[in-house]
Design a protein around this nucleic acid. Structure first.
Length: 431
DNA sequence: CGCATTTGACCCGCGC
DNA sequence: GCGCGGGTCAAATGCG
Protein backbone atom coordinates (compact mmCIF):
# COMPACT_ATOMS: atom_id res chain seq x y z
CA UNK A 1 0.00 0.00 0.00
CA UNK A 2 2.60 2.52 1.09
CA UNK A 3 4.92 1.37 -1.60
CA UNK A 4 2.30 1.72 -4.23
CA UNK A 5 1.50 5.27 -3.24
CA UNK A 6 5.12 6.24 -3.17
CA UNK A 7 5.74 4.55 -6.46
CA UNK A 8 2.81 6.32 -8.00
CA UNK A 9 4.38 9.60 -7.05
CA UNK A 10 7.61 8.72 -8.73
CA UNK A 11 5.83 7.46 -11.77
CA UNK A 12 4.16 10.78 -11.98
CA UNK A 13 7.53 12.43 -12.19
CA UNK A 14 7.87 10.74 -15.50
CA UNK A 15 4.34 11.12 -16.72
CA UNK A 16 3.07 14.50 -15.72
CA UNK A 17 3.67 17.67 -17.69
CA UNK A 18 6.57 19.55 -16.30
CA UNK A 19 6.27 22.89 -14.67
CA UNK A 20 8.88 25.32 -13.50
CA UNK A 21 9.01 23.78 -10.07
CA UNK A 22 9.01 20.15 -10.84
CA UNK A 23 10.68 19.49 -14.11
CA UNK A 24 12.64 16.97 -12.18
CA UNK A 25 13.63 14.77 -15.01
CA UNK A 26 13.71 17.21 -17.83
CA UNK A 27 17.05 17.10 -19.52
CA UNK A 28 19.07 15.17 -21.98
CA UNK A 29 18.33 11.96 -20.25
CA UNK A 30 14.88 10.68 -19.91
CA UNK A 31 14.50 8.31 -17.06
CA UNK A 32 11.67 5.98 -16.70
CA UNK A 33 10.75 4.18 -13.58
CA UNK A 34 9.00 0.94 -13.95
CA UNK A 35 7.91 -1.56 -11.45
CA UNK A 36 6.97 -5.15 -11.54
CA UNK A 37 3.37 -5.70 -10.66
CA UNK A 38 2.68 -6.87 -7.18
CA UNK A 39 6.23 -6.35 -6.11
CA UNK A 40 8.04 -3.67 -4.23
CA UNK A 41 11.18 -4.40 -6.17
CA UNK A 42 11.14 -1.51 -8.51
CA UNK A 43 13.11 -1.62 -11.67
CA UNK A 44 14.64 1.59 -12.78
CA UNK A 45 15.37 1.69 -16.44
CA UNK A 46 16.83 4.23 -18.71
CA UNK A 47 16.40 5.41 -22.23
CA UNK A 48 18.82 7.77 -23.81
CA UNK A 49 17.83 10.67 -25.94
CA UNK A 50 19.08 10.32 -29.46
CA UNK A 51 20.35 13.86 -29.42
CA UNK A 52 23.05 12.68 -27.07
CA UNK A 53 24.60 10.46 -29.64
CA UNK A 54 25.13 12.43 -32.83
CA UNK A 55 28.54 13.03 -34.37
CA UNK A 56 30.49 10.92 -31.95
CA UNK A 57 28.83 7.82 -33.21
CA UNK A 58 29.93 8.46 -36.75
CA UNK A 59 33.34 9.97 -36.23
CA UNK A 60 34.69 8.09 -33.28
CA UNK A 61 33.10 4.65 -33.00
CA UNK A 62 35.68 3.42 -30.51
CA UNK A 63 35.43 6.35 -28.14
CA UNK A 64 31.72 6.14 -28.55
CA UNK A 65 31.76 2.84 -26.71
CA UNK A 66 33.68 4.36 -23.85
CA UNK A 67 31.40 7.33 -23.81
CA UNK A 68 28.39 5.08 -23.61
CA UNK A 69 29.95 3.08 -20.83
CA UNK A 70 30.66 6.25 -18.88
CA UNK A 71 27.19 7.44 -19.49
CA UNK A 72 25.83 4.12 -18.42
CA UNK A 73 27.72 4.29 -15.16
CA UNK A 74 26.50 7.78 -14.52
CA UNK A 75 22.94 6.82 -15.13
CA UNK A 76 23.34 3.70 -13.08
CA UNK A 77 24.40 5.79 -10.11
CA UNK A 78 21.57 8.17 -10.67
CA UNK A 79 19.15 5.30 -10.76
CA UNK A 80 20.49 4.12 -7.45
CA UNK A 81 19.78 7.53 -6.02
CA UNK A 82 16.30 7.48 -7.40
CA UNK A 83 15.76 4.05 -5.95
CA UNK A 84 16.88 5.39 -2.62
CA UNK A 85 14.41 8.22 -3.00
CA UNK A 86 11.67 5.76 -3.64
CA UNK A 87 12.52 3.90 -0.48
CA UNK A 88 12.63 7.15 1.42
CA UNK A 89 9.21 8.13 0.20
CA UNK A 90 7.85 4.73 1.07
CA UNK A 91 9.28 4.96 4.55
CA UNK A 92 7.99 8.44 5.08
CA UNK A 93 4.55 7.55 3.94
CA UNK A 94 4.51 4.77 6.49
CA UNK A 95 5.71 7.15 9.17
CA UNK A 96 3.09 9.71 8.30
CA UNK A 97 0.39 7.11 8.29
CA UNK A 98 1.57 5.88 11.65
CA UNK A 99 1.52 9.41 12.93
CA UNK A 100 -2.06 9.86 11.89
CA UNK A 101 -3.07 6.67 13.64
CA UNK A 102 -1.03 7.48 16.70
CA UNK A 103 -2.64 10.84 16.99
CA UNK A 104 -5.95 9.09 17.15
CA UNK A 105 -4.79 6.47 19.58
CA UNK A 106 -2.64 8.48 21.93
CA UNK A 107 -5.48 8.77 24.36
CA UNK A 108 -4.80 5.21 25.39
CA UNK A 109 -1.60 6.27 27.12
CA UNK A 110 -1.11 8.44 30.23
CA UNK A 111 -1.08 12.09 29.36
CA UNK A 112 0.59 13.67 32.36
CA UNK A 113 4.12 14.06 31.02
CA UNK A 114 2.81 15.13 27.67
CA UNK A 115 1.09 18.21 28.84
CA UNK A 116 4.21 19.84 30.19
CA UNK A 117 6.11 18.97 27.11
CA UNK A 118 3.38 20.32 24.98
CA UNK A 119 3.49 23.55 26.86
CA UNK A 120 7.19 23.70 26.30
CA UNK A 121 6.63 23.19 22.64
CA UNK A 122 4.16 25.99 22.73
CA UNK A 123 7.00 28.26 23.70
CA UNK A 124 9.18 27.22 20.85
CA UNK A 125 10.00 29.81 18.31
CA UNK A 126 7.90 29.69 15.19
CA UNK A 127 10.94 29.45 13.02
CA UNK A 128 11.94 26.32 14.88
CA UNK A 129 8.58 24.79 14.46
CA UNK A 130 8.23 25.71 10.85
CA UNK A 131 11.59 24.57 9.70
CA UNK A 132 11.17 21.90 7.11
CA UNK A 133 12.49 18.65 8.35
CA UNK A 134 13.52 15.92 6.01
CA UNK A 135 15.18 12.62 6.68
CA UNK A 136 18.82 12.92 7.50
CA UNK A 137 20.05 11.20 4.39
CA UNK A 138 17.72 13.18 2.26
CA UNK A 139 18.78 16.46 3.81
CA UNK A 140 22.38 15.50 3.43
CA UNK A 141 21.95 15.03 -0.27
CA UNK A 142 20.00 18.18 -0.71
CA UNK A 143 22.45 20.24 1.31
CA UNK A 144 25.46 18.85 -0.42
CA UNK A 145 23.87 19.79 -3.67
CA UNK A 146 25.35 16.73 -5.09
CA UNK A 147 23.55 13.75 -5.83
CA UNK A 148 24.08 13.55 -9.55
CA UNK A 149 27.44 12.38 -10.77
CA UNK A 150 26.62 13.83 -14.16
CA UNK A 151 25.36 17.37 -14.28
CA UNK A 152 23.34 17.11 -11.11
CA UNK A 153 20.44 19.05 -12.46
CA UNK A 154 17.95 16.30 -13.12
CA UNK A 155 18.53 14.46 -9.91
CA UNK A 156 18.58 17.60 -7.85
CA UNK A 157 15.32 18.57 -9.42
CA UNK A 158 14.05 15.12 -8.72
CA UNK A 159 14.95 15.60 -5.07
CA UNK A 160 13.24 18.93 -5.02
CA UNK A 161 10.23 17.37 -6.58
CA UNK A 162 10.30 14.48 -4.16
CA UNK A 163 10.51 16.96 -1.33
CA UNK A 164 7.45 18.60 -2.70
CA UNK A 165 5.75 15.23 -2.84
CA UNK A 166 6.59 14.62 0.76
CA UNK A 167 5.25 17.98 1.77
CA UNK A 168 2.02 17.25 0.05
CA UNK A 169 1.69 13.83 1.62
CA UNK A 170 2.34 15.33 5.00
CA UNK A 171 0.03 18.21 4.30
CA UNK A 172 -2.83 16.02 3.28
CA UNK A 173 -2.45 13.53 6.05
CA UNK A 174 -2.27 16.20 8.67
CA UNK A 175 -5.08 18.11 7.04
CA UNK A 176 -7.36 15.17 7.22
CA UNK A 177 -6.29 14.37 10.73
CA UNK A 178 -6.72 17.96 11.72
CA UNK A 179 -10.16 18.02 10.29
CA UNK A 180 -11.06 14.86 12.06
CA UNK A 181 -9.68 16.09 15.32
CA UNK A 182 -11.26 19.47 15.04
CA UNK A 183 -14.47 17.79 14.14
CA UNK A 184 -14.19 15.75 17.25
CA UNK A 185 -13.47 18.88 19.19
CA UNK A 186 -16.63 20.32 17.90
CA UNK A 187 -18.46 17.15 18.73
CA UNK A 188 -17.24 17.45 22.26
CA UNK A 189 -18.46 21.00 22.42
CA UNK A 190 -21.87 20.07 21.19
CA UNK A 191 -22.10 17.13 23.48
CA UNK A 192 -21.14 19.18 26.48
CA UNK A 193 -23.73 21.71 25.49
CA UNK A 194 -26.24 18.95 25.48
CA UNK A 195 -24.84 17.58 28.72
CA UNK A 196 -25.20 14.18 27.22
CA UNK A 197 -21.74 13.20 26.07
CA UNK A 198 -21.61 9.74 27.60
CA UNK A 199 -24.96 8.59 26.39
CA UNK A 200 -24.29 9.93 22.95
CA UNK A 201 -21.04 8.04 22.67
CA UNK A 202 -22.69 4.91 23.92
CA UNK A 203 -25.41 5.16 21.35
CA UNK A 204 -22.99 5.41 18.46
CA UNK A 205 -23.62 2.74 15.88
CA UNK A 206 -21.23 3.55 13.07
CA UNK A 207 -19.07 6.53 12.57
CA UNK A 208 -18.91 8.29 9.26
CA UNK A 209 -16.79 10.76 7.47
CA UNK A 210 -18.74 13.23 5.46
CA UNK A 211 -17.21 15.41 2.79
CA UNK A 212 -18.73 18.62 1.59
CA UNK A 213 -17.47 19.36 -1.84
CA UNK A 214 -18.30 21.34 -4.94
CA UNK A 215 -20.88 19.63 -7.09
CA UNK A 216 -18.42 18.79 -9.82
CA UNK A 217 -16.63 16.71 -7.25
CA UNK A 218 -19.32 14.08 -7.61
CA UNK A 219 -18.75 13.84 -11.32
CA UNK A 220 -15.31 12.51 -10.74
CA UNK A 221 -14.62 8.95 -9.84
CA UNK A 222 -12.75 8.38 -6.62
CA UNK A 223 -10.97 5.28 -7.76
CA UNK A 224 -13.56 2.88 -6.43
CA UNK A 225 -16.44 1.17 -8.14
CA UNK A 226 -19.73 1.91 -6.50
CA UNK A 227 -23.01 0.19 -7.01
CA UNK A 228 -26.11 2.16 -6.30
CA UNK A 229 -28.52 0.24 -4.16
CA UNK A 230 -31.02 2.81 -3.10
CA UNK A 231 -32.25 6.33 -3.21
CA UNK A 232 -34.32 8.17 -0.72
CA UNK A 233 -35.60 11.65 -0.13
CA UNK A 234 -34.57 12.57 3.33
CA UNK A 235 -36.56 14.86 5.49
CA UNK A 236 -35.57 18.48 5.23
CA UNK A 237 -33.86 18.11 1.90
CA UNK A 238 -35.77 17.99 -1.39
CA UNK A 239 -32.75 16.53 -3.07
CA UNK A 240 -32.70 12.74 -3.05
CA UNK A 241 -29.97 10.92 -1.23
CA UNK A 242 -28.29 8.13 -3.16
CA UNK A 243 -26.86 5.08 -1.45
CA UNK A 244 -23.84 3.33 -2.88
CA UNK A 245 -21.97 0.21 -1.93
CA UNK A 246 -18.35 -0.42 -2.78
CA UNK A 247 -18.30 -2.93 -5.59
CA UNK A 248 -14.60 -3.61 -5.77
CA UNK A 249 -13.74 -6.06 -3.06
CA UNK A 250 -15.74 -9.08 -2.14
CA UNK A 251 -18.18 -8.08 0.52
CA UNK A 252 -16.51 -4.73 0.94
CA UNK A 253 -18.37 -3.07 3.79
CA UNK A 254 -17.77 0.47 2.66
CA UNK A 255 -20.83 2.46 1.76
CA UNK A 256 -21.28 6.00 0.74
CA UNK A 257 -24.12 8.40 0.48
CA UNK A 258 -24.27 11.24 -1.98
CA UNK A 259 -26.64 14.11 -1.57
CA UNK A 260 -26.89 17.67 -2.66
CA UNK A 261 -26.86 20.26 0.05
CA UNK A 262 -30.37 21.48 0.71
CA UNK A 263 -29.46 25.14 0.85
CA UNK A 264 -26.74 25.20 -1.72
CA UNK A 265 -27.19 22.85 -4.62
CA UNK A 266 -23.73 23.59 -5.86
CA UNK A 267 -22.46 21.65 -2.89
CA UNK A 268 -22.67 17.91 -2.59
CA UNK A 269 -22.20 15.91 0.54
CA UNK A 270 -20.47 12.57 0.26
CA UNK A 271 -20.57 10.41 3.34
CA UNK A 272 -18.29 7.40 3.71
CA UNK A 273 -18.95 4.64 6.14
CA UNK A 274 -16.78 1.63 6.85
CA UNK A 275 -13.34 0.60 5.80
CA UNK A 276 -12.26 -0.98 2.52
CA UNK A 277 -11.21 -4.60 2.84
CA UNK A 278 -9.22 -4.44 -0.37
CA UNK A 279 -6.44 -2.38 -1.83
CA UNK A 280 -7.44 0.79 -3.56
CA UNK A 281 -6.58 1.20 -7.23
CA UNK A 282 -4.90 4.23 -8.66
CA UNK A 283 -7.50 6.93 -8.60
CA UNK A 284 -8.76 8.43 -11.77
CA UNK A 285 -6.85 11.52 -12.72
CA UNK A 286 -9.95 13.55 -12.94
CA UNK A 287 -10.79 12.68 -9.40
CA UNK A 288 -7.28 13.48 -8.39
CA UNK A 289 -7.53 16.87 -9.98
CA UNK A 290 -10.67 17.71 -8.18
CA UNK A 291 -9.47 16.36 -4.90
CA UNK A 292 -6.25 18.19 -5.17
CA UNK A 293 -8.03 21.36 -6.04
CA UNK A 294 -10.35 20.92 -3.13
CA UNK A 295 -7.48 20.25 -0.81
CA UNK A 296 -5.66 23.26 -2.09
CA UNK A 297 -8.69 25.32 -1.43
CA UNK A 298 -8.88 24.56 2.22
CA UNK A 299 -5.16 24.59 2.67
CA UNK A 300 -4.56 28.05 1.37
CA UNK A 301 -7.20 30.40 2.59
CA UNK A 302 -8.70 31.85 5.71
CA UNK A 303 -9.25 30.09 8.94
CA UNK A 304 -12.07 29.05 11.11
CA UNK A 305 -12.11 28.93 14.84
CA UNK A 306 -13.25 26.07 16.96
CA UNK A 307 -15.71 28.33 18.64
CA UNK A 308 -17.22 29.10 15.31
CA UNK A 309 -17.45 25.46 14.50
CA UNK A 310 -19.18 24.80 17.74
CA UNK A 311 -22.05 26.93 16.64
CA UNK A 312 -23.16 24.35 14.16
CA UNK A 313 -26.12 22.42 15.23
CA UNK A 314 -27.93 21.38 12.07
CA UNK A 315 -26.99 18.37 10.08
CA UNK A 316 -25.42 20.59 7.52
CA UNK A 317 -24.76 24.23 7.86
CA UNK A 318 -26.97 26.70 6.13
CA UNK A 319 -25.78 29.22 3.65
CA UNK A 320 -26.13 31.93 6.23
CA UNK A 321 -23.54 30.34 8.39
CA UNK A 322 -20.12 29.68 7.00
CA UNK A 323 -19.39 26.04 6.53
CA UNK A 324 -17.01 24.48 8.99
CA UNK A 325 -13.74 23.00 7.95
CA UNK A 326 -14.41 20.03 10.08
CA UNK A 327 -17.48 19.49 12.09
CA UNK A 328 -18.85 16.66 14.10
CA UNK A 329 -22.56 16.25 13.85
CA UNK A 330 -24.10 14.29 16.65
CA UNK A 331 -26.86 12.87 14.55
CA UNK A 332 -29.31 10.45 16.05
CA UNK A 333 -27.57 7.16 15.51
CA UNK A 334 -24.03 7.83 14.46
CA UNK A 335 -21.38 10.51 14.79
CA UNK A 336 -20.27 12.12 11.57
CA UNK A 337 -17.04 13.93 10.94
CA UNK A 338 -17.59 16.44 8.19
CA UNK A 339 -14.68 17.60 6.10
CA UNK A 340 -15.52 20.75 4.27
CA UNK A 341 -13.80 20.94 0.93
CA UNK A 342 -15.88 23.89 -0.13
CA UNK A 343 -14.02 26.27 2.08
CA UNK A 344 -10.37 27.17 1.89
CA UNK A 345 -7.78 26.68 4.45
CA UNK A 346 -6.72 25.52 7.79
CA UNK A 347 -3.67 26.13 9.82
CA UNK A 348 -1.67 22.99 9.56
CA UNK A 349 1.23 24.07 11.60
CA UNK A 350 -0.45 24.10 14.93
CA UNK A 351 -2.07 20.80 14.41
CA UNK A 352 1.17 19.27 13.32
CA UNK A 353 2.78 20.59 16.45
CA UNK A 354 0.03 19.14 18.53
CA UNK A 355 0.17 15.78 16.87
CA UNK A 356 3.88 15.48 16.76
CA UNK A 357 4.42 16.67 20.29
CA UNK A 358 1.93 14.22 21.61
CA UNK A 359 2.87 11.10 19.79
CA UNK A 360 6.57 11.68 20.05
CA UNK A 361 6.41 11.57 23.79
CA UNK A 362 4.04 8.72 23.93
CA UNK A 363 5.90 6.67 21.40
CA UNK A 364 9.57 7.41 21.86
CA UNK A 365 10.57 4.38 19.85
CA UNK A 366 8.80 5.53 16.75
CA UNK A 367 11.39 5.58 14.00
CA UNK A 368 11.14 9.20 13.10
CA UNK A 369 14.84 9.67 12.42
CA UNK A 370 14.66 13.24 13.50
CA UNK A 371 11.82 13.76 11.19
CA UNK A 372 8.74 15.62 12.16
CA UNK A 373 5.82 16.94 10.29
CA UNK A 374 6.38 20.60 10.86
CA UNK A 375 6.99 22.09 7.49
CA UNK A 376 6.84 25.51 6.14
CA UNK A 377 4.32 26.13 3.50
CA UNK A 378 4.35 29.28 1.58
CA UNK A 379 0.63 29.15 1.24
CA UNK A 380 -0.18 28.25 4.80
CA UNK A 381 0.60 31.01 7.18
CA UNK A 382 0.28 30.51 10.89
CA UNK A 383 -2.77 32.17 12.20
CA UNK A 384 -3.90 32.84 15.69
CA UNK A 385 -7.48 32.81 14.62
CA UNK A 386 -7.51 29.22 13.58
CA UNK A 387 -7.61 27.89 17.08
CA UNK A 388 -8.50 30.04 20.04
CA UNK A 389 -5.70 28.62 22.06
CA UNK A 390 -3.09 26.14 21.22
CA UNK A 391 -3.27 24.77 24.72
CA UNK A 392 -6.93 24.33 24.19
CA UNK A 393 -6.18 22.55 20.98
CA UNK A 394 -3.73 20.22 22.61
CA UNK A 395 -6.07 19.43 25.43
CA UNK A 396 -8.86 18.85 23.00
CA UNK A 397 -6.73 16.50 21.01
CA UNK A 398 -6.70 14.30 24.06
CA UNK A 399 -10.42 14.61 24.49
CA UNK A 400 -10.93 13.90 20.86
CA UNK A 401 -8.68 10.90 20.83
CA UNK A 402 -10.65 9.44 23.67
CA UNK A 403 -13.79 9.59 21.61
CA UNK A 404 -12.02 7.93 18.72
CA UNK A 405 -10.85 5.16 20.98
CA UNK A 406 -14.33 4.71 22.29
CA UNK A 407 -15.63 4.40 18.79
CA UNK A 408 -13.16 2.63 16.49
CA UNK A 409 -15.55 2.87 13.60
CA UNK A 410 -14.67 6.54 13.41
CA UNK A 411 -11.18 5.56 12.48
CA UNK A 412 -12.41 3.12 9.87
CA UNK A 413 -14.59 5.70 8.24
CA UNK A 414 -11.82 8.23 8.44
CA UNK A 415 -9.48 5.77 6.82
CA UNK A 416 -11.79 5.40 3.86
CA UNK A 417 -12.15 9.13 3.39
CA UNK A 418 -8.48 9.84 3.93
CA UNK A 419 -7.56 7.12 1.49
CA UNK A 420 -9.66 8.74 -1.17
CA UNK A 421 -8.19 12.14 -0.51
CA UNK A 422 -4.62 10.94 -0.41
CA UNK A 423 -5.01 8.71 -3.39
CA UNK A 424 -6.42 11.55 -5.35
CA UNK A 425 -3.80 14.05 -4.44
CA UNK A 426 -0.84 11.86 -5.14
CA UNK A 427 -1.43 12.29 -8.84
CA UNK A 428 -1.57 16.02 -8.73
CA UNK A 429 1.11 17.16 -6.43
CA UNK A 430 1.93 20.38 -8.15
CA UNK A 431 -1.36 21.39 -9.64
C1' DC B 1 -29.22 -10.96 -22.44
C1' DG B 2 -26.65 -9.24 -18.73
C1' DC B 3 -25.85 -5.62 -15.87
C1' DA B 4 -26.89 -1.31 -13.53
C1' DT B 5 -30.34 1.69 -11.91
C1' DT B 6 -34.86 2.80 -10.16
C1' DT B 7 -38.34 2.63 -6.84
C1' DG B 8 -41.76 0.95 -3.73
C1' DA B 9 -41.87 -2.11 0.16
C1' DC B 10 -39.95 -3.48 4.17
C1' DC B 11 -37.02 -3.39 8.39
C1' DC B 12 -35.22 -1.23 12.35
C1' DG B 13 -34.15 2.20 15.79
C1' DC B 14 -35.78 5.98 18.20
C1' DG B 15 -38.90 9.22 20.46
C1' DC B 16 -43.30 10.07 22.30
C1' DG C 1 -47.51 0.46 21.12
C1' DC C 2 -47.40 3.60 17.50
C1' DG C 3 -45.61 6.73 14.20
C1' DC C 4 -41.69 8.63 11.96
C1' DG C 5 -37.58 8.60 9.42
C1' DG C 6 -33.32 6.52 7.82
C1' DG C 7 -31.51 2.68 5.63
C1' DT C 8 -31.82 -1.61 2.89
C1' DC C 9 -33.88 -5.08 -0.09
C1' DA C 10 -35.42 -6.80 -4.27
C1' DA C 11 -38.49 -6.82 -8.21
C1' DA C 12 -39.17 -3.95 -12.11
C1' DT C 13 -37.21 -1.28 -15.53
C1' DG C 14 -33.82 0.68 -18.66
C1' DC C 15 -29.82 0.46 -21.39
C1' DG C 16 -25.96 -1.07 -24.21
Amino acid sequence: MEGKVALKKLLQVQERPYDNNSDALKGTEEQSIKHTSGSTDHLLSLSLNNSELPQKKQEQPLTQLGWLQTKFEEVKKENQILRSMLNQITDHYAVLQSRLLLAMQQQQLPSSPTNNDDLQKDNMRPEDMEKPVLPATWLQRLNSGDPSPADGSSTTKAFAYAENIEKNIDRNLTSCAYKAVEGKINKQTIISQQEDGASEAASCRKARVSIRAPSDFSLMGDGCRWRKYGQKIAKGNPCPRAYYRCNMGTECPVRKQVQRCAVDETVIIITYEGNHNHSLPPAARSMASTTSAALSMFLSGSTTSTSTLSNYSGLFSSSSTPPGLATFYPSASCPTVTLDLTQPSIDLLKFQRAISSNHCHHFPTLPLHGYNSTQQYSDSKPSSTMIPSEKTSLALVDVVSAAIIKDPSIKAALDAAVSSLITGDTLNINN
